[in-house]
Design a protein around this nucleic acid. Sequence first.
DNA 1: TTTTATGCAAAGTTTTTGCACTTTC
DNA 2: GAAAGTGCAAAAACTTTGCATAAAA
Lengths: 141, 141
Amino acid sequence: MEDWEQILTAAGHRITAPRQAIMQVLAQSETPLSPQEILERGLAYHVRLGLVTVYRTLELFEEFGLACRVHLAEGCHGYVLRQPGHRHVLLCQECGRSIEFSGQDDLDTLVARVAARTGYRIADHWLQLFGVCPACQEIET
Amino acid sequence: MEDWEQILTAAGHRITAPRQAIMQVLAQSETPLSPQEILERGLAYHVRLGLVTVYRTLELFEEFGLACRVHLAEGCHGYVLRQPGHRHVLLCQECGRSIEFSGQDDLDTLVARVAARTGYRIADHWLQLFGVCPACQEIET
DNA sequence: TTTTATGCAAAGTTTTTGCACTTTC
DNA sequence: GAAAGTGCAAAAACTTTGCATAAAA
């Protein structure tokens, strides 16, 4: 049994064909996918998959930290799988490929400084970086 | 003539009642507002204001860096006025109030480190902090 | 008076809800 | 077999487009 299946099972949720299909799709994608895209690819694994289920499954995955929503400048319909422990997304503006990184330490300094300056008690943060991945840099030259 | 009016005028855009109404609404709000909310409040300043115009105006404001889109966990429909120079948003999870901060230096370190580690050429970043503002902390006690 | 902007209506998308039927455990 | 999950259809919410009218410079 895979890791995510244990997490859901432990919370009383069931492992179903649609959920496995959606996880499969997310796991095989290097770029964030919209619910619509997930549906299209997911049909290959589960013919009767419906868009409604994709929405509900993404919500579930997000609730358990298995996937996270990626907000792009044009919209906010992308979802990517979330590696445990890692928190931030780095997106390539050319090809859309996304990787994750941690870099927690540096952020902690910043967060502490902002907290001290503003009086806010800071509970969470959300960082995304945008750039050009090594592969796309090569194409340019 | 206000600053934003000069910016738009210089680019050949006109200062209209709807635009003034929307700017007024944004300026007076401490929390991010959705197009729908902007419409509702904007009607107080310009009775014939329409939702379509709100969308088009926000797009225009964003293009000129006058407003920016704020992405919240629940959705991504909020807009706030953007103070020049500042880049990041800090949101109160209790009351929704948002302030901006810069904190560029700390981020530069992080960005440089991530760039070195991943090989990405990082062009832009996007940081939002979430927490509890001083006022809401007092209410708790 | 010329050009830009508006607002209505309508179309296009995206997301959510209700409910009977399936599937998992 | 009971509870959780699915998928259809339909509704709701959000966003964009076309076009005739209105307003700004």
